[in-house]
Amino acid sequence: MSEIMIDIRNLVKKVFIGSPNELKILKNITMTIHKGEFVSIVGASGSGKTTLMNVIGALDRPTSGEYLLEGEAMQEKSDNDLSDIRNKKIGFVFQTFNLIPRNSALKNVELPMLYAGINRHQRMQRAKELLELVGMSERMYHLPNELSGGEKQRVAISRALSNDPAIVLADEPTGALDSVTGRVVMDLFHKVHETKGTTVVLITHNYELAEETERILTIKDGRIVDEKKNPHSSLAKSGVE
């Protein structure tokens, strides 16, 4: 746990709704996440979790403060650089799955590899392996609207992993699922974290799920108000296996 993956200092994010009204959503956030960590971020609705995740995921730029990803200063990057970073280093998993509606499961998983310029044959091969990993080989030619919520999320996780990212960012990935399906999805994150050593950042409302991770950050009203190392995390992991 020595190398630092994410290093955030005094990060502020404001949004502007009309010129005099600026809204400070993230207020002076300082945090670090190490390589291979499994961290959860919890907090009430509207506390700023998604906003923070968007900054970490290079989808959004901070208003002020510093953000280093694997030692690289993100505020200096061009839009195209940020696209490439999202493509190669980050895997997003959304609460609402966000699969491309007209593409089959397989095509959805291939998409980030297409943007990375990987050839057709390799793309297909890897997408099939990933779908097999999440137990979706049977359904790879199905369109998203032919899949259940849990199945969609498993496809979305395969897609997030397709370019072998350094970080998986999951924003309430189980929010739209029942507890049994949620469990299957949660187990997949544990599996990815353990077998590949991928850094996983999980945003959730669910404290039970947060308890399974190595460290819990609590965010309230745009500030990190609590940080708790979880001594039971390894126990929780062995319970999964």
């Binding site: 839009d79 696209s83 490439d84 999202r86 997003f92 897609r159």
Partner: peptide, 16 residues
């Protein structure tokens, strides 16, 4: 719109 957002999150450059 959502599809475009998703594609961008997955790393599609604007030019693409």
């Amino acid at each position: 719109t959502r599809e475009i957002g998703t594609r961008k999150a997955l790393g599609a450059r604007s030019s693409y």
